[in-house]
Design a protein around this nucleic acid. Structure first.
Lengths: 392, 392
DNA sequence: GCGCATCACTAATGCGCATTAGCCGAGAGA
DNA sequence: TCTCTCGGCTAATGCGCATTAGTGATGCGC
């Protein structure tokens, strides 16, 4: 069933039914196939090749237009330089908004850099034809596999992991026996935002967050708390406003009250809906407070795409491409049998247009901070927030 | 140099260093490797397998999570249900504007439907590490390969084709010995736009185009000409305004002149820069003509993304996702050894807000057309423009 | 002038799979 | 009873390459 019917391998003849093999090159150069492999593979691995022979081989290969067969190459090398990418929604959904595209930018780049090609496993969304329940098992075709999104069947996934197959999940996971993962360092990033505010002179800062328990939310709150603590500011319940329905509960009255009470800066968490952020902005507008004149604002994440107009909120961006790249690096390390290291990727500080020193207090940079600094709680060396320069 | 030092293949032990092979499955099922291959390959090729044995094998394979090695499959002259995707720019560039994303939407869907997974060959952009000049030959790992964009090295490409490797290029190509391709049917789509205008009562229509010889341009002009001809309207040089620098040469005076002369509709070609379209709009605005009140306008393509405001121009959209899907279908057919069929994909008519019956002539729908209709030149059955309903 | 270490190269092997040629036992035909 | 299929399976082979043992020559020291 090879090529155009029949069995083509009529060896012995000079016939060249397909593309040339190393054997043909060898014959033409008057050497052995091994020599050809050695010369073209560049690896002198123990053996030495005379310049003369090398030239003969290279010449023969060129004149025949020899190109190695990737399948054979990979088979012989016992690895195929393929990384699987599994998303349990379409990898390229019609709705670009919810796609993994930004991650894939980094995934592709890093994979290329590491010498891997990518296998996109299709049809893993509901109703996929092949595989059925065991869709994930196709991943074994690759040397390792990347999981995007939280929709992978956990049982299957853990099984792959248990069997020693290298798997990296893009996004934090909490299972003890689950796959390796990489995620954004929300804690450090959030702390960094608070540090900025403090450096500008703010002493009363309120975090507005929604009412869920996702790690993404919890981490941000923790970061804010660490930032406050580090500056010796109070971390009591008054520092966090938590609401299941910010649009209703975060009123202009509430905001006025805060401001009257000495609050000079607000920090809102970012979520799918950006409910907290929207509510905060609405309430401020209604209260007649403007930003950054009256109060400073920061958003712990990227602004929603529909809010492209208006000032850019200060805060941080999730470096999606870098996350993708980090995931690939980690996966490549696992494939190579090395140990995984830091799974957190630093976010990028976004200066924005919503920060200013507080109104009434004269900006006393970092000196007269009330309360003691907490020394041991310094930022984590490896994952510290990459803060852009203020002038940037 | 295999795995973590030493030779790992300490066969005989129960050790399972990598993913399971057919041999392991065979051992577990108590049959030979051949039987496993036979059962899992579904090909009863001469041999018959009892249902009992089949069950044992399938069970063993499943419990081990066996997945065939794609490289080995390819080497053994079989299929591996992998389609390669090659883009000679980054497949996921940072600049989303110029990406192949819309095509990939369709590629992914159709690949899933046909039971193929996709291999993204990375690093084919300039400076790619692996492969070097012969980067394209990595494609041989897959059953066939899709080429996006015009940057593939033609020589390599033609070589693959000559060797009988299934290749489909997304976008029209004109080499005689080049790869198969799929493209948008600009001719039919452009003709369809003219037909609309004619149906609305327009009798003097001018095409504004830039001065290049790309097939995309030529095809559109041809479509317009066919549309005019079909309606029995003159197809002389006065029907086409061609300019290397529309911004300068397409003046408001020129436009006024046309209108005074009885022209009631303009059609502009779409290009990277949309120069023709922009110039036309500018000239009309300067001439104080409004659309669709005074004249009707159509754009032979999708509006530039920076012109999101303003009325939606009538015209057609290139169905990128469908093109991707069509490319995959064609490729799958080639892989299966079938013959290729129609490479053209119909564009979608976009009604827009820029069409209206001509001002002074009473709208005489399709009846009193001057001149004879040209019968044989009817639209191409298979590729006719999928025109949206006007009410849509 | 005999061991011994290069040097320059080759024969042999196996990667994981598909395929081909058989092998063995049981029933059918003679 | 002896061959003759034929069903059900397996041993053997090869895909094109990389890798590992060699194998002759040659040079070198003593």
């Amino acid at each position: 069933m090879r090529e155009a019917g029949k069995r083509t391998r009529g060896r012995g003849t000079t016939a060249r039914p397909g593309r040339p093999r190393q054997a043909e090159v060898a014959r033409l150069a008057g050497v052995s196939q091994t020599t050809v492999s050695l010369v073209l593979g560049k690896k002198t691995g123990g053996a030495a090749i005379s310049e003369e022979t090398r030239q003969k081989v290279v010449g023969a290969a060129e004149s025949l237009g020899y190109v190695p067969d990737p399948a054979a190459r990979r088979l012989a090398a016992a690895r195929n330089n393929l990384l699987g990418v599994f998303s349990f929604t379409a990898t390229f959904p019609t709705d670009v908004q919810h796609s993994y595209y930004p991650f894939l930018v980094g995934v592709e780049q890093e994979a290329a850099a590491q010498g891997y090609d990518l296998v996109l496993f299709t049809g893993s969304s509901p109703g996929g034809t092949g595989g059925g329940t065991h869709a994930l098992h196709r991943a074994r075709l690759a040397d390792g596999c990347l999981i995007l999104g939280r929709h992978a069947p956990t049982a299957e996934l853990c099984r792959l992991v248990a069997e020693g197959f290298p798997v990296v999940h893009l996004g934090r996971r909490d299972e003890p026996e689950g796959p390796a993962w990489v995620g954004a360092d929300y804690v450090s990033a959030s702390r960094g935002v608070v540090e900025r505010l403090v450096a500008l002179g703010h002493r009363r800062i309120v975090l507005v967050r929604e009412d869920d328990e996702a790690p993404a939310s919890t981490d941000r709150e923790q970061g804010v708390r660490e930032g406050l603590e580090e500056a010796g500011l109070p971390v009591g319940p008054e520092a966090v406003f938590r609401s299941a329905d910010p649009a209703r509960e975060l009123t202009s009255d509430r905001v006025r009250e805060w401001v009257a009470d000495g609050v000079t800066a607000f920090v809102a968490e970012e979520t799918d809906t950006s409910a907290a952020w929207r509510a905060l902005n609405a309430a401020l507008a209604e209260a007649g407070l403007n930003c950054p004149g009256d109060v400073s604002l920061a958003l712990l994440g990227s602004p929603p795409p529909d809010a492209a107009d208006g000032p850019t909120p200060a805060g941080f961006d999730i470096p999606r491409a870098q996350l993708g790249a980090a995931a690939v690096r980690l996966l490549a390390a696992l494939v190579a049998g090395e140990q995984a290291s830091e799974p957190l990727v630093a976010c990028t500080f976004r200066p924005g247009d919503t920060l200013a020193p507080p109104r009434r207090t004269s900006p006393q940079p970092p000196d007269p901070l009330p309360g003691p600094r907490v020394p041991g709680r310094g930022r984590n060396r490896n994952t510290r927030t990459e803060q852009g320069e203020p002038t940037q």
